[in-house]
């Protein structure tokens, strides 16, 4: 089995300690809450989407380092992007943690490749995916996402 220490790289530890875009947008246009019932992780996403562009995004909640850093990096990755690009990124990220990511097909993932190691820890895939599943729900207009 791969050493999980390879997953817990500096970028993940650092985003866990100092999450970006942590908070709540009161005048949001889109929102969703995500739950991982198995471990009790909870996440609240609020967004401002105008003319198909994610102008702002913030998250609140509690979870493990993988969940929190994934949410933090996700917000930095999708802020300023079009909804269409964000939806593509969600698919690419899901492929990454399943070990099916192919840059030619899914596009570049930038810093998000640090989550590649999650594929070796099947029980932790849900932690990494929760923020992305919640974003998908928010953009689809469904208020609750669950990893179960």
């Amino acid at each position: 089995m791969a050493d999980p220490r390879e997953l817990y790289q500096q970028v993940i530890l650092e985003h866990n300690k100092k999450p970006r875009n942590f908070g709540k947008i009161h005048s949001c246009t889109h929102q969703a809450e995500g739950h991982n019932p198995l471990c009790g992780d909870q996440l609240y996403l609020t967004l401002i989407v105008q003319e198909g562009i994610i102008e702002d995004i913030q998250f609140e909640g509690r979870g493990c380092a993988i969940d929190v850093s994934s949410a933090s990096l996700m917000t930095t990755a999708v802020k300023g992007k079009t909804v269409q690009d964000a939806l593509k990124l969600i698919q690419a990220f899901r492929a990454l943690v399943r070990g099916e990511w192919n840059p030619a097909a899914h596009g570049d993932l930038g810093k998000l490749v640090v989550f590649q190691g999650v594929k070796n820890l099947p029980v932790r895939v849900k932690c990494a995916v929760l923020p992305w599943a919640t974003l998908q729900s928010a953009l689809d207009g469904s208020p609750i996402a669950s990893t179960e």
């Binding site: 050493d3 999980p4 300690k17 471990c39 009790g40 380092a65 932690c127």
Partner: peptide
């Protein structure tokens, strides 16, 4: 402080240590 039990659980698991990390059905 600053270390979520699930992260610690994953790291301990890799060292061969079987423990439980979670809410223990006592939310």
């Amino acid at each position: 402080d600053g270390v979520h039990p699930h992260d610690l659980g994953t790291l301990l698991d890799h060292e061969g240590i079987v423990i439980r990390a979670g809410h223990h059905c006592a939310q």
